[in-house]
Deep mutational scan, measured.
Amino acid sequence: MATGGRRGAAAAPLLVAVAALLLGAAGHLYPGEVCPGMDIRNNLTRLHELENCSVIEGHLQILLMFKTRPEDFRDLSFPKLIMITDYLLLFRVYGLESLKDLFPNLTVIRGSRLFFNYALVIFEMVHLKELGLYNLMNITRGSVRIEKNNELCYLATIDWSRILDSVEDNYIVLNKDDNEECGDICPGTAKGKTNCPATVINGQFVERCWTHSHCQKVCPTICKSHGCTAEGLCCHSECLGNCSQPDDPTKCVACRNFYLDGRCVETCPPPYYHFQDWRCVNFSFCQDLHHKCKNSRRQGCHQYVIHNNKCIPECPSGYTMNSSNLLCTPCLGPCPKVCHLLEGEKTIDSVTSAQELRGCTVINGSLIINIRGGNNLAAELEANLGLIEEISGYLKIRRSYALVSLSFFRKLRLIRGETLEIGNYSFYALDNQNLRQLWDWSKHNLTITQGKLFFHYNPKLCLSEIHKMEEVSGTKGRQERNDIALKTNGDQASCENELLKFSYIRTSFDKI
């Protein structure tokens, strides 16, 4: 039985969820670079991206490699990797027998973001014989899940209580170790020597080791999670996991709180800001991140802002960003909400898709409305799209047979046209069989910064309504002859009103 693990408890099935942008060198404390989270699957090609990484700022997932063999891993080693800020997950990587050479110096898994409450997941690794993470000293947050690894031993010899604050939620089941077939031998045991430290858990006094050649490092209890030197002297209180010299914040392997210019500090002093819960960055760093993602459509890219001495992905609820200094300031009234469309555009074809934009005031991208039916549609669209004030790209209304009016965009005031449909149009209306009105132009103002209007096959939309939009939106004169079809717009509506004058002759039985 794995020490510190839980057996036999019912657990939810383990679901495996399925960018080499360097964020800056980590400095003297770390020998390499800070790398983003990685999802490495199918083959070993991307694994080489770990070569210079000291910190993975995010998670590391290595999974679904069915053609790899043990010899493929023999020359692979990433000794610079010290810390993973989120979680480490391995799933069905064939041929991998140990992690001792792959990650010989991995010391800390912070667990800032977890995989279903777990910071370390080893699942269905069919050839893994031992973990071998002999320098792993601290899992700051989260638990361990090690399950269905039929060859995995050296679990009962690990004292997880020396690595985690609590072992109650560890789930370590259905491994070879369960069948008591392992016969784990710690260093020196074969020669009758006791080389590794022994600890007591559940009444068992057991030597602690990761492999037959690597003991588990056990520091004096007084050192807590700070770690200790090879001689057993406690590291500085700002260290986490390990250090090369005692009581020196510049000799830590990793930091308990924050890293700044080669030393570990309790908090980031001005003019620095907390970033990702582990390091200090200056304003320029946060500003660069903001600008890199301002026009990016890459998933996970955030326009970072500053709030409460932190550089964070977005302002919290009730705050909006001051564009001059990136500071989050309290909103006066309802907060603006910028919604970034991942692929640059979004099609609204149902109430469900409209709900995804609920509360958005600025759309960074283009909207395509293609709704053919739905219950209580006008009210639903207004509830979900009615706060949109600005669209950076274009607005396209296409084959939306259920629409009679666009009044559900009740606050839309600006279409920038930074991206144009077919390279020309910022407003595009095609084949809307029941569209009769755009907006009530006596109450609604709309500016279209650039781009043209396109109207074709809107049989109940009168040309007068379209011409009014040209005047109000500032697009009059931009359109070419064929942009607004004269014969297919309003051709099934009563669009022309003329005053009919009647004269009559009164007659009676005795007068003409």
Rank of each mutant, 00 (worst) to 15 (best):
Y134L: 09
L89M: 15
C239F: 00
S112T: 10
G183S: 04
C219V: 03
C243Q: 01
F285C: 03
H28W: 07
L260F: 08
V265E: 02
I122D: 00
N149H: 02
S284K: 11
P31H: 13
G241H: 05
K292S: 05
T329Y: 10
P316M: 09
R263M: 02
L90G: 00
N282E: 07
L133P: 01
C215Y: 11
C328Q: 00
C215W: 09
P220N: 03
D75I: 07
L90C: 13
P271L: 04
G262L: 03
C293A: 06
V173G: 04
P70E: 07
N43E: 07
L289F: 09
N202T: 09
E168R: 07
S77R: 10
F258T: 06
N322S: 15
I139M: 03
D248G: 02
V253E: 05
T68K: 10
L155W: 07
N43T: 06
D86I: 01
E57T: 05
E231S: 09
S244F: 15
G241K: 04
L133M: 03
Q276L: 06
H212Y: 11
K148P: 01
N195A: 13
Y87G: 01
I109A: 01
C331L: 04
E238V: 04
P270H: 10
M83P: 00
I306T: 03
N195I: 08
E180P: 06
D75W: 13
K193V: 02
L128G: 01
F283P: 10
T157N: 05
L131G: 01
H226Y: 13
C228V: 05
G58K: 00
N195G: 10
D247A: 12
T199S: 06
P336H: 12
I312P: 03
M38D: 15
N117I: 01
P31V: 12
V265Y: 02
G333V: 04
T229G: 07
Q299E: 05
G32K: 04
K193G: 11
C311R: 00
C328E: 01
E147T: 15
V218R: 12
K310C: 06
S244I: 04
T189I: 11
S225G: 10
Q303R: 07
P246T: 03
S323G: 14
R46T: 01
G333C: 13
V121T: 09
I222S: 06
T211F: 05
C53T: 00
N149R: 01
T250G: 07
L88P: 00
R110N: 06
V121R: 01
F283H: 03
E238S: 06
A119E: 00
E147Q: 03
I139V: 08
D178C: 08
L90F: 14
M125P: 00
I84V: 04
D169P: 13
R110Q: 13
C215R: 12
H59Y: 04
F116W: 14
T320K: 04
P187E: 13
G318R: 05
F258Q: 04
N308Q: 14
N150P: 12
A198R: 13
F66N: 02
P220S: 04
Q303K: 05
L289H: 14
V108F: 02
K191E: 02
N179D: 08
C264E: 00
C182V: 02
C243A: 00
P197L: 07
A198T: 09
W278Y: 14
K217H: 04
N195D: 05
Y118L: 03
N149P: 00
Q216T: 06
C280G: 00
